[in-house]
Simulated scan of single mutants.
Amino acid sequence: MSATQAYQGIRYDDPRVQAEFEQLLGRVVAAEQARTPIAQRHCKAERDAEEGAIMTRSFGRSTRPCHRG
């Protein structure tokens, strides 16, 4: 679930608080978008390692499963 979906519909009566909330939400969304390409590259590297395309010692196995959504 993205931040925009998770916090959709939240509104504050105080315009200053609402503006701060929207700025914070914008930063969270930007961070999610920046992280997406990194996660995709990581997943590809894990798949390549599983297929033997790269050596395990140069990649290093992760203990966390790759999200393949």
Rank of each mutant, 00 (worst) to 15 (best):
Y7V: 01
D14C: 08
Q40W: 06
Q5K: 00
T4I: 14
P15T: 01
G69I: 06
G69N: 14
R35N: 12
R27W: 04
Q5A: 15
A31C: 04
A6K: 13
A19L: 13
A49H: 03
L24C: 11
Q5M: 06
S2G: 05
S58P: 01
G69E: 09
Q18L: 12
L24H: 09
T36G: 09
Y7H: 08
C43E: 06
Q18P: 07
R64E: 10
Q23C: 04
T63K: 08
Q40D: 15
R61Y: 06
A49D: 09
V17G: 01
A30E: 11
Y12N: 04
V28N: 02
V29Y: 04
T63A: 12
S58C: 07
D13P: 01
E51D: 12
G52Y: 12
R35H: 14
E22L: 08
R47T: 10
E32H: 02
L24R: 09
R64V: 11
A3M: 02
E50A: 15
F59I: 07
E20C: 10
K44W: 03
R57W: 13
K44C: 10
T36Q: 12
L25G: 02
A53Q: 12
E46L: 10
E46I: 13
G26P: 06
D13M: 02
D13F: 07
P65F: 05
G60E: 01
R11Y: 01
C66D: 12
A49N: 12
Y12W: 14
H67D: 12
